[in-house]
Amino acid sequence: MTDNSVLIRLQNIHRTYKVGSDTVHALRGIHLQVRQNEYVAIMGHSGSGKSTLMNVIGCLDRADQGTYEIRGIKTTVMSGAALARIRNEQIGFVFQSYELLPRLNALKNVELPLIYSNVGFLTRRKLAREALERVGLAARMHHRPNQLSGGEKQRVAVARALVAKPSILLADEPTGNLDTQTSAGIMDLFEKLYEQGQTIILVTHEADIACHARRIVRMQDGQILSDVPARQDPAWALIHGPSAEAKETGV
């Protein structure tokens, strides 16, 4: 059953860490499928395996077991160089702590992925500028990270994640270091990107952030607890009051 709108497909993904003589089972049999132009939030308590899962999806890490396909291509058997290429072309990663290079200005930080994908200097500049415009930071192009606020830094990081026009935008607690108001700004940005057709997977443990997504995946102890449209998740009720559907079914 091939469905070319399926972007990623994880089947029975396991990931264990060895700490001394102990083994930590961070992921225990994850099944997940994300289609084009979905907006997914992954929720769960600290230590439930969200980041580990995101790293696997972002090809920063490899699963010990199971298969992971991007656009129908198995990543499990790929070489390091091929994975680097996937990260470069298919994936845009936004980290909680921004991870901007302190000595480069915003524009150069955004250019970074293009340096590793044979894009000429002028094109690189143009694409980086456009990406900064998309996140509303055209005016801060020549500022260095230490001259930017937290929210602005995260916007630069989002621009960097977008600049190579990736298939999926992955964001691991992108608002974790931001205050509520700034967080709302970032979430509005994500909403806009989603409306423009960007597929987004977002990790958070905050219900109000998760409710921006259209689908909520809950995790616990390395397993998926529930995977439902946002409106059917308890988080929705918490933020917006009981939904129409829930009222109808009497939940």
Binding site: L60, A84, R85, N88, F93, E99, L101, P113, Y116, S117
Partner: peptide
Amino acid sequence: TREIGLRKAVGARASA
């Protein structure tokens, strides 16, 4: 080290 990690995360190969 962090810079190297980031460069790899955005697609730098080991050879780069």
